[in-house]
């Protein structure tokens, strides 16, 4: 019996840009909408750093990218080394080393879905300034997704949970966000992906499994863009 590689190992080994649903087009959708006059921006799970590069053209803010993978961090560093005011660090989303209310904007492109959200969203929220924004581009299941498929996907993708659009919205509202903008995003990328040569059989197997899941459950799995604003200080009862 083959030991399948994990999906995370696959993504790391592929090392391709925009490994999130909707690809570059999905990133460009929200990048153009970010507020002006930002001071500090954080991208969690920055991968190869393509989104940071996009952001660089859009804002003068100091950009921070973190990724749990040392390999991704070194790729992202190499890609952004010529740009000003960008820092890429190897950090785990669960133990972020930033100070309370430091960021104006935090971005997660298909990263939070892979983490224990009950634990991670409050931590990210804590790092946001009052009236700061969070941008999430994340997977959502529909009610039609069979339970058995959900369980299989949790194992394959190592999802601690699999949320619906309504679950995401509830998470945001429960964590003190208001004015949540939601838009459904096309999952498939317009520009064809190019995969590296010499993928091991394990990796090809994992790639195939990923493809089969998303073919079989294409209509039960969606991607949404959430742009939410954290409540301002005047409403923040915890600070009274």
């Amino acid at each position: 019996m083959y030991e399948m590689s994990s999906y995370h190992e696959l993504i790391t080994q592929l090392g391709i840009d925009y490994t999130h649903p909707g690809g570059k087009a999905a990133t460009q959708k929200w990048v153009k909408q970010i507020p002006e006059n930002l001071e500090n921006v954080l991208e969690v799970g920055c991968g190869t750093g393509e989104t940071l590069r996009n952001l660089r053209h859009q804002t003068a803010a100091f950009l921070y990218g973190i990724d749990s993978s040392a390999e991704m961090v070194s790729k992202a560093k190499a890609k952004t080394s010529h740009l000003h005011h960008i820092e890429v660090m190897q950090q785990n989303i669960e133990d972020l080393l930033f100070t309370h209310q430091f960021f104006d904007l935090i971005i997660s492109e298909s990263v939070l879905a892979f983490t224990p959200i009950d634990n991670c969203l409050p931590k990210l929220t804590n790092l946001l300034k009052p009236n700061g924004q969070i941008i999430l581009l994340e997977m959502a299941k529909s009610q039609t997704l069979p339970h058995i498929a959900e369980e299989k996907m949790k194992i394959f993708y190592q999802f601690p949970q699999l949320l619906s659009k309504e679950d995401w919205l509830k998470q945001l509202l429960d964590n003190g966000y208001e004015t949540v903008y939601i838009e459904k995003v096309e999952k498939e990328t317009k520009t064809p992906v190019t995969l590296p040569q010499h993928l091991s059989i394990d990796m090809l197997q994992t790639l195939n499994q990923h493809y089969q899941f998303n073919t079989e459950y294409a209509h039960d799995l969606h991607t949404y863009l959430f742009i939410a604003k954290k409540r301002g200080d005047t409403h923040d009862h915890t600070r009274n």
């Binding site: 083959y2 993928l199 197997q205 195939n208 499994q209 089969q212 079989e216």
Partner: peptide
């Protein structure tokens, strides 16, 4: 091509994967 094939997909592993030769 390296096939993306449902037979090797969900539940389909466990036998001599890729009979085409690596």
């Amino acid at each position: 091509i390296d096939p993306l094939d449902a037979q090797r997909g969900i539940g389909g592993y466990g036998y001599g994967f890729f009979g085409y030769g690596r």
